[in-house]
Structure formats: C-alpha cells, structure tokens
Amino acid sequence: MVAKQTPDMANHIEVRGLRYLRGRRVIFDGVDLDIPRGRITAVMGPSGSGKTTLLKLISGQLRPAAGSIRVDGQEVVRMDRQALYRLRRSMGMLFQSGALLTDLDVFDNVAYPVREHANLPEPMVRSLVLMKLEAVGLRGARELMSSELSGGMARRVALARAIALDPSIVLYDEPFTGQDPISMGILMRLIQSLNRTLNLTSLLVSHDIKEACRIAHYGYVIADGQVIGQGSPEELRHSTEPRLEQFLRGEPDGPVQFHYPAAEYAEDLLGPIDD
C-alpha cells in the first residue's frame, strides 16, 4: 500500500506485452493498452475476440502467460489473494450476464457489497442502495427477485451493484446489449455523469462500435489477438487501416475473419481428399 498515492499518474491501467492462451489457442499476443485516469476508454472487437477475457485479466481473475498489467502502478499479475481483494474494493465490474446473486432480491443484491465492506447502519445502507437503484431507474423494482428480472433489467441492477461502493475504476462488459433506446440513453448518460462527477476511470468493452464511440474519449480495436487500431472516436472513424475499416463498417468480407478458425469448408463437408 506504499506506492498507492500517485494521483498524478496519467494512466490508471497499463497493459504491456500481454499474452494469453486458452489451451493452444492464442487469445492475446503482445497487447499494449493505456487506460487513462478519469476517462472513458472503449475496447472494441468482434465477438469472441477476447474482450471479456481482457477484463478478467485486468481484474486478476485470470493470469496471463506473459506480460504485465499495472493498476495504480501495482502489478496485478503477481498479486496474491489478499492484495487482489484489496484492489477489487476500488474496482466495480459489470458482468456481461449481470451475475446477480439468485437467492437475493434486487435490494439485497445492491446492498451486498455495502454490507460486506462498509460498516454502515442499516438506514444509511437503505438510502445508499435506493440512490443507486434510482440512478439506473429501478428503484421501484427493489423487491423483485433477480430471477424475475429481464436480461436488460438484471444488467442495470448489476450496474447499480458495481457502483455501490463508489469505486475508482468501473469495468463494463457490454453495457448496452439488451437495452431499449430509452434505457440505453439513460445508461450512457449515467456512465458519462459517473465519469465526470466522481472522476471515475471507465473501461468499457463492446462489439457495438457506434454506441461505444458515442461516449468514449478513446478507443482500442482488438482482433486476432492484437490491437489493430486506436485513437479518439473521430480518428477511428477516419482510419484507413483495412481491418479497422471492415470492422467499423460491418462488412462481412475483408481481412478480419468472421469465422472461428476452421478447416477448409469444402474439405470439412466432403471429408479429407486423398490423393
């Protein structure tokens, strides 16, 4: 906890030479990322490119094969369980699936981290939780069980839970999927205002480039285990990198493979051709 107070450090999260494998499949190979403090950074990439994996690496749920991941100047890769738990108290994560605790209702789900870590009297827990639920527009749903929520609602509750302890970093895994235009707008404004008022560092991963570019200050595009482009949303839009162009325009044909690596289609259908 000695090197913690370095608030002028520009990069809240620094990833260097990240390499990660799933079995024999290379998910990341030499990825470098800088996530500046107090800004919204988007990491975009096609489905299956490893966006969720990246968030799990940054939060220390997975360990890379090589490379360094520094959060607040501290090396996550070498942290033991205690240090990781300490780090995660200042880190909120919105899971792609929501990941609410199914035996608790909405209120208790949001209250869970508060009751665990902040020693507050119950009336204060109550007002805190209601504030967070109000922010995501679900104050009225507090008594529903998490199994009674729609996918989009569950993720908004999960967001309320992720920000319950006012973390300094929030990792958003696909925050916009499953939201109707109105709640999408609310979420975008919420992410932006959290970022502004609390000086929060936001890292959001998404395959939805249009939405992500609307609120991000800076974006990275990953594909094939590498960063294929980075810059402000404006720069990304005007990039001439062919892989980037294809991804941004959503074209099916181009240098980025839409298909998971596979044998030749004809060969797969007809069996190997002996000669």
Partner: peptide
C-alpha cells in the same frame, strides 16, 4: 455449479468477497 456457471462466484470474487 449453477452459481459458477452464472458467474455468481466470480461476481463475489470481484466484490472482494471470498
């Protein structure tokens, strides 16, 4: 197993709850 499959165990870990 269901808590693991629905990432509830990961969510606990991420909330710094063992």
């Amino acid at each position: 197993g269901l808590m693991k499959a629905t990432e509830q165990l990961s969510a606990l870990e991420m909330m710094a709850v063992d």
